[in-house]
Nucleic acid binder design. Sequence first.
DNA 1: ACCTGAACACCGTTCAAGT
DNA 2: ACCTGAACACCGTTCAAGT
Lengths: 219, 219
Amino acid sequence: MLSREQIIDTAVELLDAGGEGALTVRAMTERLATGSGAIYYHVGTRDELLDTATETVVTAALATKPGGASVTPEEEIRAVALALFDAIAEHQWLATRLTLQIIRNPIGPVTVGIFERIGRQVGALGVPQAAWFDATATLVHYILGAVSQNARVDGDTSDVEAGVDREEFLGAASRAWQELDPDDYPFMHAIVDQMREHDDREQFLTGIALVLDGITNLR
Amino acid sequence: MLSREQIIDTAVELLDAGGEGALTVRAMTERLATGSGAIYYHVGTRDELLDTATETVVTAALATKPGGASVTPEEEIRAVALALFDAIAEHQWLATRLTLQIIRNPIGPVTVGIFERIGRQVGALGVPQAAWFDATATLVHYILGAVSQNARVDGDTSDVEAGVDREEFLGAASRAWQELDPDDYPFMHAIVDQMREHDDREQFLTGIALVLDGITNLR
DNA sequence: ACCTGAACACCGTTCAAGT
DNA sequence: ACCTGAACACCGTTCAAGT
């Protein structure tokens, strides 16, 4: 018998392999050797399936160990942030789907789960309660913004090739920046070297440290 | 004769009125009283039209006055951030399309335009040059993350009704949060009142101030 | 309760043909 | 150069019918 879980797993596979465009009802029925009605019976609309897949993947990412007793709030926040960073690296379709879910269903399990997880640590950081909501919202907005914008479309290359792709990409980008009119784009010219040598993950951690610095100043 | 500009304007109208799903080639040909080939001739694919529309709207938003001579870097950054905030409030489809464009074309005019505009002010803030790229990336990630996640889907109501909608929405959200298990979601329960009374725009400015605080600490 | 699959209305895109 | 619009392959969704 066809199960809801099977359908969701298959959907994630199709999404990972070919992006949102690859998730068609017909592709699903072929892989699952079933009729289209069966899918609607178990998970509803294509759009609902997309939401469910998002929920499943994000929940799994957040389920990483709650951290030992001796973990600082900063470390815990970094762990959650990196879990989301890695989830989007693995499932690039999440970048837009996560945003869509937060906009359309801000009281759903995805939004609430992330907020609760980050918010507790903001409290543990010693931020006065009156600032909890603002501080947590800022952190969550930053984390989700950064991970979404860092999702790279690089096809299904091996790990070794991915390194090459990355260098090629950075080279192309820095060349494009070099070609900009220096009078119109002085800043881009000034940072072209930093851009070529930067690491997304490191920059993400630097950004978190920076926001955390602003947050702890609220004490 | 049909012009590229006409096509883009019509596309933005359809997108504003009904979201991404409302932008169909057939709806375009009806409004413009033309054949489908004409659209492909002028702007290419539907996807390319979507990118062009995004570019047009973002460029217009960034074109707000460059600021007088006596404007501080902080004020300038706030002005750019609020311009993007308002652009997404007016064109909600931007939330996902902007992310998509940044991912797929990080060297395009949209990404470069935002980066240059914000980056200059980061320099003017006195941040050491070695930290320019990291600081600017953090700020841009935060701004785009926050504005995207604040895009509300509220249909085509008048300004007065929008206020009612907002209260209804906040009420529904706070009620949903109240119903969460307090043992599993202590943080959500603690901030439910702040959430009901907060203002998105104010919270956004608070977030920017917080990130700016972290950035100026780099001096 | 669970599943099939034909049928339907609607897509984006192409391209020979016209002016 | 600019535009038409029929034709094509492909969508998501429904629903009577089966087990």
